[in-house]
Design a protein around this nucleic acid. Structure first.
Lengths: 217, 217, 217, 217
DNA sequence: GATGAATGAGGATTCATTCAT
DNA sequence: TATGAATGAATCCTCATTCAT
C-alpha cells in the first residue's frame, strides 16, 4: 500500500504521477517497467517516489487494485436484475466489461498482463484468477438451476468457454472497433460505438446460448 | 536469422544451445531472458553466441520460428480429410493443437507469451496474428459453404470464438490435466491423457457446433 | 551538542527518543545507523529531529557522552577506599565495570564499537582512548608506589595488560554468563549472576596479582 | 570465491585490484566499503568487477581468507619445537603474530574488524572465533599437563587472558612502535623494531608466566 | 515548535554487446 | 572460429539533510 505521504499529495500531483505510472506499466511488464522513467517523466526526484511507495511492487499492486476497484465500480453503476436469464445477464456483463476496457484501456492492459504473465507469482494473482473461475462456475450452476443452461453440460467446461470469451473479447473488440490511444476524445475517453459493439455481443451470446441452452436441443 | 556459423555447429552443440535457450525464454519473457545465463548454462563463450546470432532478438525470432515450424509439422503429420464436416475437423485440429502444447510446453509458452505480450511489437507478430485470423475465417467460410455453419452467423464473430477457444484451451487443459515439467516421462514428453482430453474437447465442440450449426436451429 | 529545543522536550518524549536512538546505534555502527528509522520508530517528524540535533554526528556524540557519564556515575555510586591494595581496587573496578555493561549493554556496545572501529576518527575518540590509558598508567604507578606492583615492571606494559583485560572482559562475561536482551527482567535490567561473575574476576585478578605483585617473587 | 576470470587476470592487474580493495576494506567496515570507489580507484569498469567477483561479499571473504592464509603461512615459516615450555611457545607465537600484523597491517585490520564487528554474522565468523578459543584452551590444557601452568587455574579463564592479550597486543604495539602506512619502507613492509618488540613481549609473558606458572606459587 | 515533502547523490548489481587475442 | 575481458548505462533503492508551511 502506498505510504500516507502519497495520499497527502495534492490531487494534481497524485493523479499526474499515477497517470504516468499507468502508461509505463501498460507499455511494459512488471520487470521492465522503470521507476527511473516514471520519476523522470513525472518530474519528481527518485527519492520522492520512495516516500510515496514502499517499492516498485507497492506501486504495481496499487495500480492493479485501482483497476479492480474501477471495474467493480463500473459494473455496479447500473447492475442488472439478478433474476434475469443467465444469458441476458452475460450480455450485460460482457457489454459492461468491454465498455470498461474501452474506457480504461491502459488499466485493463495492466491487469490482463498480470494474469497472463504471472509477473507476480503469488497468492494475490492466484486469488484473482480463482475469483474469476468461481464467478463463472457459479453463474453456470445458477444457469442450470434456472433452466437456462442444459443440465448435461459440464459446468467446468461451460465456465471455461465463458471465461475464454470474456478474456479475449476485449482485445477483439479493440481490433475490430479500432480503439486505441490515438482515438481519445476530449475527455480522455475513447468514443465507444455502442451499437456496433452490441451487435457483436449479440452474435456471440446467441451462439453460446444456442449452444448451451435447453430450449434449442 | 542465425548466422551461418550457427548451422556449421555440430548437431549436438546446436541442439544443446537451443534447448537451453528454449528453457530460458520459456521461464522469462523477452526482456528478462538473459543471454548471460544462456551462455553460462550452455558452457559456451559470450563471444561465441554473437558469432551464432546477430543479437538477442535474432535468437528469439529463431525460437519463435522453430515453434511455428514444429507445430506445422505436427499438424501435417496426419492431416485429416479436408472434406469432412468442419466441426469434426476442428475436433481434430484442437486435439492436435493441444497435444502439441502438451508435447512442447516450453515452445508453446514462448509463442503464447509473444502473442499476448507484444514483447516484439512489429510486423512479425502482426503477421502471425493475422495468419491465425485468416485461417479461422477461411475455416468458417468453408463451413458455411459446406452447410456445417449457419449462414446467418457473422464469419468474423465465429472466427473470433474459435480463435479464443483455441488460444485459451491449452492453458485450461494443462490446469485441468495437470501437465507440467515435473510430469515428464522417459522420452522427455509429458504423458497425455488422451481419453480425458477428448472428453473435454467433445464437450466444447458440441457446444460450439450446437451453437453455430444449421441442423439445430 | 543537542540544541536547546531537545532539552525543552518533555522528559517522556526525550527519553523515548534517546532509548530508540540507543537501540539503533547499538544494532548498527555509525555509518549504518539510520536517522530515518529512528524518527519513524520514535514517531516524530524528520524535521523535528533536526530541530533537536545538529545532525547525525551530534546525536552520536551525545549518546557516547551519555554512556561515559552513566558509567562514571555508576562507578562513583559506591567508590572504594582509594587507600586499598591496587588489586583489590581493580577487583572492585572490574566488577563494577562489567556490572555496568550488564546493566547497560546497549550503551556499552556503542562505546565499545566507537573505540574499536574508529567510526569517528577524530580528537574526541583519541581523547577517550588517552583517558583510559592515563587512568591505568596512574593506577600502575600508584600500585608500584604502594608496593602492590613489582617496581621492575614496565608501567606501560602493565597498563596495557589491565586495559586489554578490561576491554575484553565484558564480551567474555556475556559469552560465559549468557546475558543478552532476551534475558531482561522486569525492570529492563539483565539479571546479573554476581556470584558466578565474582568467581571469574577472582581468578583473573589472582593471576594478574600473582604475575605482577611483589610478594610472589 | 572469486570467479575464474579473476584468476585469469594478469598478476599486475590482479594485485593492483586487491591492493586497492584491501585499502578500502581496511578504511571502512563491510557495509561502508564501496565497490564504486574500488573500481574508480582501480580504473576498471563497474561491470568488470562483477566479472571477477560474485558480489561484494565474495570479495570480502576473499580478503579475509587471504589474511588467514598469509598469517598461517607466516606462522608456519619457522614453527617452534612443540615440546618447549608453553610460555616460550607463546613468546614465539605472539612475536610472530605481532610481526605479521606489522607486515600486513591492513589485512590484519580487516580481520580484526570482522571479528569485533560481526559484519558478517554467520557461521564463517563463528567458526573463526571458535577456532581461536579452541586453540588457546588446548594450549592451556597442554600447559597444565606439562607442568607449566598451575593446575588449579581455570582453563577457560587462562585461555581468555591469552586471547585478550593476543587480540589487543597488535594495536598496542603499533601505537607504541609507531607503525603505520606512512612508515612503509621500500618493499612495502613496515620496518619492525624487533629488539623493542621483544622487550615488550618479554615483559608481558613474564607477567603471565609468573601469574600462572607453578614454580612461583 | 512541528511538520513531512523534496532532494539527488550514492549504494550494489545486471545486462547486452564489442573487440582484441 | 573461439574466447572472455571490458564496458558503461541501466536497474531498484536508501540516505542525511533542507525548507516552506
Amino acid at each position: 500500500m502506498p505510504k500516507q505521504s502519497f495520499f497527502n499529495l495534492s490531487a494534481e500531483k497524485r493523479e499526474n504521477l499515477i497517470e504516468i505510472a499507468i502508461q509505463e506499466f501498460a507499455d511494459n511488464d512488471y520487470q521492465n517497467a522503470s521507476i527511473s522513467r516514471i520519476v523522470t517523466q513525472a518530474g519528481i526526484a527518485k527519492g520522492s517516489f520512495y516516500q510515496y511507495f514502499e517499492n516498485k511492487e507497492d506501486l504495481y499492486r496499487y495500480l492493479l487494485d485501482l483497476g479492480t476497484q474501477q471495474k467493480a465500480q463500473f459494473l455496479n453503476s447500473e447492475p442488472p436484475d439478478p433474476e434475469m436469464n443467465i444469458f441476458t445477464y452475460l450480455r450485460w456483463l460482457i457489454q459492461a466489461g468491454v465498455h470498461f476496457e474501452f474506457s480504461n484501456p491502459k488499466l485493463s492492459q495492466i491487469g490482463y498482463r498480470a494474469v497472463k504473465n504471472g509477473s507476480l507469482p503469488d497468492e494475490y494473482m492466484e486469488q484473482a484468477v480463482a475469483n474469476t473461475k468461481t464467478f463463472f462456475t457459479q453463474l453456470v450452476t445458477q444457469g442450470k438451476a434456472g433452466g437456462d443452461i442444459d443440465s448435461t453440460i459440464d459446468a467446468d467446461v461451460a465456465s471455461f468457454i465463458f471465461s475464454a470469451i470474456f478474456t479475449e473479447l476485449g482485445g477483439y473488440m479493440m481490433d475490430r472497433l479500432g480503439s486505441d490511444d490515438t482515438l481519445l476524445n476530449g475527455d480522455g475517453r475513447t468514443p465507444f460505438d455502442s451499437a456496433a459493439a452490441e451487435a457483436i455481443f449479440e452474435q456471440v451470446l446467441r451462439i453460446l446460448q444456442s449452444g448451451m441452452g435447453v430450449e434449442k436441443r
